[in-house]
Amino acid sequence: MSEQESIRVLIPTPLRRFTGGEGRVTANGATVGELLAALDQRYPGLQAQICDEDGRIRRFVNVFVNGRNVRDEEGEETPLHAGDEVGVMPAMAGGRSAVRR
């Protein structure tokens, strides 16, 4: 990535401890996975909050590109373009029962 960092990333409150309190950062990546890896270079530990050991987005975390959940697109392989907005959002879930899918 030689061009200017051109993808806006929304960092939710629970993950701002990794970004020095920043709620909006910019980065680059040709795919969601690349973007998250690039962010982790700058904010170590952030990627592990979002992805498991195999690099898959965790079940109780969502990543949105321009408002679309990448689970409904190509997951970590979802392509990114200059001007895109990526949002990371830990799920809000719970209940009386054991976790179900």
Partner: peptide, 29 residues
């Protein structure tokens, strides 16, 4: 999103839309 009687998962897309609205207004959840 959960149809059962003993679990909840807030609709992720709705949550994100609300989060953006609140965040853009300078607020938080």
């Amino acid at each position: 999103l959960d149809q059962g009687t003993d679990f909840y998962r807030i609709d992720d897309a709705e949550l994100f839309a609300v989060y953006r609205e609140i965040d853009e207004g300078g607020g938080e959840i």
